[in-house]
Computed example of a mutant assay.
Amino acid sequence: MSSAKKVIVIGAGIIGASIAWHLVKAGAKVTVISESGAGGVATPNSFAWINASWGNPEVYFRLRTRAMAEWKRLAKDVPSLPLAWCGGLCFDLPPDKLEAYAAEHSSWGYGIERVDAKRAAQIEPNLVAPPDFAVYVAEEGVAEPVATAKALLADTERLGARVVGGAVERLALAGDNVTGVVVSGETIDADEIVVAAGAGGPALIATAGISLPMETPPGLIVHSRPYRKLLNGLVHAEKLHMRQTAEGRIIAGSDFAGGDPGENPEATARKLFDVTRAALRGAEGLELDFHTVGYRPTPVDGFPVIGRAEGVSGLYIAVMHSGITLAPAVGLFASREILKGERDPLLAPYGLGRFAQ
């Protein structure tokens, strides 16, 4: 570039942090604006599973496995990222569906091992009831969400970006061109605006006349007090997904994104925690510390929106539920598209324009 492109990234969760890092690494002049600070709003409430597991078509599987590989590339550039490739043991489907998943994803190249109760007990010795049949994927992992976003943002600042606090009131327009953002009544100009604001994204882009059909289902996750090591990796049992952090906290939800908190989230949390404790041998002293209720930014068809908005220039949108898995690939692909006009073929299904068809 003859002169550095000025880009504003709205949002400091895992997606905004990754896009900002890749942009500044590629030579852009980047400003990150976030009302909530490093980590954003959705990211701190994430189960933080890095995977390409069941329930998705092959085209989305390919994007997710590419993202898993990009995490390893990014970790070489930012060694402080708190990643753990701990493996995932899955038995939250009926045996016939679990076998169908294993057969399908194995044919796609996913490293699935079919395991019996003996092998499951070797992988996770503290399960009270090891499953008779499960699948194990050694290459799955976790990225501690807030610490990962903070590490990326810290390195983004080291590389020359600005990270500022504040609420973006609206996008600034000149005709059909987005020219900046308005923060506290002041307009900050840029060549391109990236909206990576999670659940806040639709309201922001609506100020430019753009509609993003999205849902924000709630998900409750419980967090224990730090405890001795009980889990080696991710465990996906029926209505109980759990893992243990490096500091010893057991994190659990009724599924990986967290379950419905119901009318009394505190009671739901206590019940879920009792189920978690009962599932683990040696967990008698495990204590509930707190629970979170996150609102997952999910486009209505369940798949990401990544790309420029149609009908206006200067606006790039990145909103998705699977932010922890997808972050490094989205950051890389978005930076290339914004700075060079190159759209990666893996992003082809994920433009906003699909909702207009």
Rank of each mutant, 00 (worst) to 15 (best):
V163T: 13
A151Y: 05
V142W: 02
K118A: 14
A121L: 10
A151H: 06
P130Y: 01
V146C: 13
A154Y: 02
Q122G: 07
A151F: 07
L152N: 00
L159N: 10
A161W: 02
T156I: 05
Y136M: 02
G165I: 00
L127W: 02
K118R: 13
A134L: 07
G165V: 03
A143I: 03
Y136W: 15
D155L: 06
A147Q: 15
L153T: 02
R119H: 10
R119P: 07
A154N: 14
P130F: 01
A161F: 04
R119G: 07
G160W: 04
E124H: 08
L159H: 12
A151M: 12
E169Y: 08
T156E: 00
G160P: 00
A120T: 06
A138I: 09
A149C: 09
L159A: 13
A129C: 05
A138V: 13
L153I: 14
A129L: 08
R158A: 15
P130S: 08
K118F: 10
T156F: 09
E157L: 13
E157F: 03
L159Q: 14
A117S: 15
L153E: 01
A154I: 09
Q122Y: 12
E139M: 11
P125F: 03
P145G: 09
A147D: 13
L152T: 02
A117R: 10
L127F: 01
V135D: 00
D132R: 15
A138Q: 14
R162I: 07
R162K: 15
A154W: 01
V137W: 00
D132N: 14
K150E: 15
P125H: 06
G141V: 07
A147C: 10
Y136F: 15
R162M: 11
A161T: 09
Y136Q: 01
D155C: 06
V164S: 10
T156S: 02
V128L: 13
V135L: 12
A138L: 07
V146N: 11
D155S: 13
R162Q: 14
K150A: 15
A117T: 05
V128K: 15
I123H: 05
V164W: 06
P125C: 09
A134D: 03
P131K: 09
A167L: 14
R119F: 05
E140V: 03
L159D: 06
A149W: 01
V168K: 00
R158Y: 09
V142E: 02
V142F: 04
G160V: 08
E124I: 06
